[in-house]
């Protein structure tokens, strides 16, 4: 207790939280680290930069697709935004998260944390949560600005699809942030994590689906196999969640294939949550084994 109303960097708050083995103390550890990560993200302008990127691309897309606004223009714009988000949100999340652990080691912060009596996996969770809050807010505000423009143009009649799109984009961001944390926990150097992030991005955004198309073209796959190909890519799960909601621009075939493959909304939502939780657990395990 220093009496400073704005403790900087969280150092005093750690002292503030007594080292207890109770459940309350566990949560406090995580909360403290999350708070630090969040504040750093806002102060070093990452949060604002992400917001600006999401808002700029979404607004640009809405503005330039203005020529083809029809009665079902709203659905088409949301579909286009979903296609854009498949590229943009994973890239933003990976760029924001790849240095979370390995970067903290570079500047000595990780060593300081590990010296304190805090479980390592709680460091991972705290780091993730702090950055996740900043990322979620950035996605919400960035696409929210674009959503405001859509309300001005189309009203609220079909807004629920946009809500699903925003929630999906947030889940997509959280999932790739978790994957970034895995890379960061694994990498020995920051550049390795960055390279890994780019490979992961290219894989999930492009290569995975291209290979899946090739496999489907080459073999007669069962519905379950097609479903597995879809669910093994968080970007694919997001795309199908949103486009399925929109009816993929009036394409009945899409819905038929989805239901034949057993890809109902509960399955897709569960897969999306799994793509957040499982990488997070993996990152927690990896950071336990990490050698400084």
């Amino acid at each position: 207790m220093t009496g400073d109303p704005r403790p900087d960097g969280g150092v005093t708050t750690i002292v503030e939280a007594p080292v207890e083995q109770g459940r309350l103390a566990n949560v406090a550890d995580i909360r403290t680290i999350a708070g630090i990560e969040y504040r750093l993200a806002v102060r070093n302008r990452w949060a604002l930069a992400l917001t600006a990127v999401f808002a700029a691309f979404a607004l640009g897309l809405i503005t330039f697709s203005g020529a083809s606004v029809g009665p079902d223009g709203f659905d088409r714009i949301v579909a286009s935004l979903a296609v854009l988000a498949v590229y943009l949100v994973p890239l933003g999340a990976l760029a924001f998260g790849y240095d979370a652990i390995v970067g903290a080691e570079d500047n000595g912060w990780l060593q300081a944390l590990f010296a304190l009596p805090i479980r390592r996996w709680r460091v991972a969770i705290g780091t993730y949560l702090g950055r996740a809050i900043a990322l979620v807010a950035a996605i919400a505000i960035g696409f929210g600005i674009a959503g405001g423009m859509l309300i001005a143009e189309f009203g609220l009649a079909e807004w629920s699809t946009y809500t699903v799109f925003m929630l999906g984009a947030i889940a997509l961001g959280l999932s790739f942030l978790a994957i970034a944390l895995v890379l960061s926990s694994l990498a020995r150097e920051k550049t390795h994590a960055l390279g890994g992030a780019l490979v992961v991005w290219a894989w999930f955004v492009l290569v995975h689906d291209l290979l899946a198309l090739g496999v489907i073209a080459a073999f007669r796959l069962s519905d379950a196999a097609v479903a597995a190909l879809v669910l093994s890519n968080p970007a694919g799960v997001f795309r199908i969640l949103v486009l399925g909601m929109l009816g993929a621009g009036g394409d009945a075939g899409f819905a038929t294939v989805m239901s034949a493959a057993g890809l109902s909304y509960p399955v897709l939502v569960a897969a999306m949550i799994a793509w957040i939780v499982i990488p997070l657990i993996v990152a927690g395990v990896l950071i336990q084994r990490r050698r400084l």
Binding site: D209, L213, A217, T256
Partner: peptide, 21 residues
């Protein structure tokens, strides 16, 4: 042609992979 022969590929419509092809 692919969609005609393999309707399952529909699951990847609108994906960046489709756009690339």
């Amino acid at each position: 042609d692919l969609l005609r022969a393999h309707p399952g590929a529909e699951a990847f419509s609108e994906s960046p992979a489709f756009d690339a092809v």
